[in-house]
Amino acid sequence: MNQVYITRAAKYLPGNAISNDEMEDYLGYVNDTPSKARALILRNNGIKTRYYALDKNNKPTETNAEITAKAIEKLFDENFTKEDMELLTCGTTSADQIQPSHASMVHGVLKPSHSIEVNTSMGLCNAGMNALQYGFMSVKSGNSNNAVCVGSERFSAWMTADKFNHEAENLKQLEEKPIIAFKREFLRWMLSDGAGTFLLEKQPREGEVNLRIEFIDFFSYAHELEACMYAGCEKQEDGSLKSWAEYSADEWLKQSIFSLKQDTKLLGDFILKKGAQALRASFDKNNLNPDDMDYVLAHISSNYFKDGLREEFAAVGLDFPKEKWFYNLSEVGNIGAASIYIALEELMASGKLKKDEKVLLCIPESGRFAYSCALLTVM
């Protein structure tokens, strides 16, 4: 089996950084009314700026596939060109279409002169790590000599006011308050657009920051817990999900069936606790010592969770000092499947990493509570 190295990393963030006060200029006003929940949600999540592939007329400027391709193109140089690419593996929550697959669409945008293997990982925040795992296993096994792995999102197009105005109008006709449900509005003020990408190869590159992938682990708790974050469905009283296909087309609009929703109570009850349980299991499986970690990159959806995550990790014997944690959420927002890629790219570009240091990646997914983690060694 081959060793596998992250030899290059790149990111693409569309447009300019957008401040909290500008958000509704891009997303629009539901029912022509400023959100009352926005300030509270932003105060708790601690996000200061984010990126949207939108203009101020609420119109998309780029597709997810185009955002992804622009990140990948930054990997190419005289030592690794578009024509050298053998495997493209992409993870996203927010593909531009149900079919064809996201990776096929990205391949079509890139237009290399040859056929390549493509893989798409769909899901939520772990979709990017699933894509990385596929590339890791392919290079490790010798199936491919290199892999371009990507996490990307274009959430903004899901969050524009027109996607919720039908629901608000329906509530008005029912003589109820025309305010969209908190479970939907919560995520309007959390999510951001962008893409991050890694090049995986069998050999490290001279003169570059190289990270050897030691392992990638995944843990799902769907056998214990109901869905917490979902789209294209509606949650029922018994916790089950009713598919969009079981609703009429009229109900799709009136109930914002395709919007991304989150059960915030379930999130608070389990997201940190199960994350600590998963990481403890990974450390036991791989016989790791928490004192050996030099950097901890944990994807979090909100700065609200920072202290709680440290405490939950410490409670299971994984007490990482504050100075070892690396975050960029406040500056780029929550970019879902791309978040861990973009955080690691920034760390690699920072000049801080030294040979033999250990970098731990931790990614929670609140969809139905799934977690991934990975250990990297600086070469």
Rank of each mutant, 00 (worst) to 15 (best):
L40M: 05
S156R: 04
Q236V: 02
T120P: 10
S350D: 09
D307L: 13
M1Y: 06
Q277M: 15
K355F: 04
E311D: 15
I216P: 00
E312F: 14
I180E: 02
F215Y: 13
E208K: 14
I340L: 04
L347Q: 10
A281R: 12
Q97W: 15
S138I: 13
S141H: 04
H223F: 13
H223I: 12
P34W: 15
I116N: 10
Q262C: 03
L187W: 12
E62G: 01
K56I: 01
N286Q: 14
K11N: 02
C373T: 09
F186P: 00
K48M: 11
I18H: 06
L279P: 05
M85P: 03
S121E: 02
E346K: 11
G128P: 01
W244V: 15
L124D: 03
S243A: 10
K354E: 13
E153Q: 09
A349N: 07
S152Y: 12
L110A: 04
E185R: 00
Q133M: 03
L241Q: 04
A127K: 07
D84K: 07
Y304A: 05
N45Q: 04
Y295Q: 00
E117Y: 14
I179A: 08
V30M: 05
D32T: 02
L266S: 05
N16M: 10
Y221R: 04
T89G: 00
G128L: 01
E175G: 11
G123F: 04
E346S: 06
G46N: 03
A181Q: 09
L75R: 00
E22M: 01
K202F: 07
C233H: 07
Y221A: 05
K111W: 08
E167R: 12
I340E: 02
E24C: 11
K140V: 06
F198I: 01
A315R: 15
R188A: 06
R154K: 12
I213Y: 09
L361E: 03
N79E: 08
N16L: 06
G128R: 02
N303H: 09
H114W: 05
K70I: 02
Y52Q: 11
